[in-house]
């Protein structure tokens, strides 16, 4: 548990215009309701973290933002454009601007590290192989990985390295928004700290908007400008880490102190 006194009050940062808006979203899988009349704003250029119990639908929220899942009702706006009304071509264009870092990395296991990182560049740009190679090296350097890994296959990497390669693959296209799906799950404390550093570094150096899904409270307090707490199919609390840590609301206090069970 992190003591409220140690939480940096980043609320001093002026509230930015939302780049992502989720408005009245409903989503269910059969009888299993994930979201009901859910609202969430993600401010531009800042880091928002979604916390909540495992199985509560945090990843579903992110997948709806890039159109991998469609809501049953409601609107999802990214930079003013409604994702729910986008066709395949528009979605593909959106996904070049909104990167998704998958929980397990989702690296292509038949490709080398270099080919994984270069995937989006080869797909969407006319860069020469020399330019792509330079860009791949720069991306790996940004996430703290050495060039020696270029020809390695994902199966030979550790969990932390896989997540960093996935991060390098995501930033190669210079996205405006990065969605991190449980970036620290399964990592040791040292790698959790490294990933936290990466998120902060990418935000400060690239100015990207970050949306992080996690149930790791210290991580959430460390990297976030805003924290949204998922409970009962919506986000009843959205505030700064300081506001969350000092909240007197029982629901928030229970979660911060680890007294909320996983979703059924």
């Amino acid at each position: 548990m992190t003591a409220p006194g140690r939480i940096a009050d980043r609320s001093a940062r002026p509230a930015a215009e939302p780049i992502i808006r989720m408005i009245g979203v409903d989503k269910a899988f059969g009888d299993h309701v994930v979201y009901r009349d859910m609202y969430l704003d993600v401010p531009k250029g800042q880091t928002t973290t979604i916390i909540g119990p495992s199985g509560g639908g945090k990843s579903v929220c992110m997948k709806m933002i890039i159109g991998l899942l469609r809501p049953d009702r409601g609107r999802i706006l990214v930079d003013g454009a409604d994702v729910t009304e986008m066709g395949e071509e528009e979605l593909r264009a959106l996904r070049r601007r909104v990167a998704y870092v998958f929980q397990g990395g989702a690296l292509f296991d038949s490709m080398t590290v270099a080919d994984n990182v270069a995937y989006g560049l080869r797909e969407h740009t006319d860069l020469s192989e020399e330019e792509i190679d330079a860009k791949v090296r720069a991306c790996l350097d940004m996430v703290g990985l050495s060039d020696d890994l270029l020809d390695e296959m994902p199966s030979s990497l550790s969990g932390g390295m896989k997540k960093r390669v996935a991060l390098a693959r995501s930033i190669a296209m210079e996205p405006d928004v990065i969605l991190y799906d449980e970036p620290t799950t399964g990592l040791d404390p040292k790698n959790i700290a490294v990933i936290g550093d990466m998120i902060l570094k990418l935000q400060s150096e690239l100015g990207v908007t970050s949306l992080v899904v996690t149930h790791d409270m210290p991580m959430a307090f460390r990297v976030s400008d805003h924290i949204a707490m998922l409970s009962d199919h919506k986000f009843p609390f959205v505030g700064t880490p300081y506001e969350m840590a000092t909240s007197e609301v029982d629901l928030v206090r229970d979660f911060v102190h680890g007294r909320i069970a996983d979703a059924p």
Binding site: K63, L68, R92, R96, F102, G104, A106, L107, G120, M173
Partner: peptide, 14 residues
């Protein structure tokens, strides 16, 4: 299962 197909979509490919 390992979300690689979703990753292709997420990278803007088909």
């Amino acid at each position: 299962v390992t979300e690689q197909i979703d990753a292709i979509s997420a990278l803007g490919a088909d």
